[in-house]
């Protein structure tokens, strides 16, 4: 952490905040404050420069055209790659996840360059859109309970050698590659297709980002009563969706 407060940067809410992505920001902020941390939240609109000194960067999902506009603007802004070089944590969802990769298919059906912060590239799936509850086991090295979320995407994301799958799908489509992977991560950069929002369904993921930012192995406990109730319900719903 750069100074006394945690700098939480929300990248491009004007373009990439279509599926309740604000929820991820609110949950991380809330759980930080519950641990007694000061939080400086910085919402960066797409006509503003991305600061390099943030601790945690969140990038959300969006529709196809805003995704292209976001990629165009982020490609000419050195802020996010510099922040990653500085060791910042980046968590991206859906369209944001694709933008962090090498390339994706834009709204015009063309290949659009991403930022290359994750060794992945995305194509458009031929089959049915992945829509529904998803349940996945997280990479054991991250020490997290199962991920629950809601996915809604046509994109297929192929993982290169430089990343690991964030999770292994039990129910749902995930990366859509047919190998059961969901999301990707390397060091402090994460990507996932999960909405929900993902932090509201998986507060342990929010805590992981805080632990990485603070460089601590544990946080003071927080009341998880309602999160746990919601998780229980949605995990059961996902299993039922699979057997249906």
């Amino acid at each position: 952490m750069s100074d006394s407060s945690l700098r939480l940067v929300w990248v491009y809410p004007d373009l990439l905040s279509t599926y309740g992505d604000r929820g991820n920001v609110l949950v991380v902020e809330r759980r930080a404050r519950q641990r007694g941390l000061d939080v400086a939240r910085i919402d960066v609109r797409s006509d503003q420069p991305v600061p390099t000194s943030g601790d945690i960067y969140l990038i959300g999902g969006g529709e196809d055209r805003p995704q292209r506009l976001a990629a165009e603007r982020l490609r000419v802004d050195p802020g996010l790659p510099r922040a990653v070089d500085n060791g910042a944590i980046v968590f991206s969802v859906c369209a944001g996840y694709q933008i962090l990769g090498h390339e994706f298919i834009n709204d015009l059906g063309q290949r659009e360059a991403g930022l290359g912060l994750l060794d992945v590239h995305s194509t458009r799936g031929e089959g049915a859109r992945n829509v529904g509850d998803i349940l996945a086991e997280v990479d054991p090295r991250l020490g997290l309970p199962p991920l629950t979320g809601f996915e809604n995407h046509q994109g297929v994301t192929h993982l290169g050698q430089g990343v690991s799958p964030l999770a292994t799908v039990q129910v749902g489509g995930g990366n859509g590659t047919g190998d059961g992977t969901e999301g990707a991560w390397r060091d402090t950069v994460f990507g996932t297709y999960l909405h929900g929002p993902v932090m509201a369904r998986n507060p342990a993921m929010a805590d992981l980002l805080l632990k990485l930012a603070l460089d601590v192995s544990a946080l003071p406990p927080a009341d998880n009563t309602w999160y746990d109730a919601l998780r229980g319900e949605r995990i059961a719903a996902a299993r039922q969706q699979q057997s249906a």
């Binding site: 309740g20 929820g23 809601f150």
Partner: peptide, 9 residues
């Protein structure tokens, strides 16, 4: 609609 994410907007 089956995605409740909108509650966070």
């Amino acid at each position: 609609g089956t995605d409740t994410s909108w509650l966070w907007d």
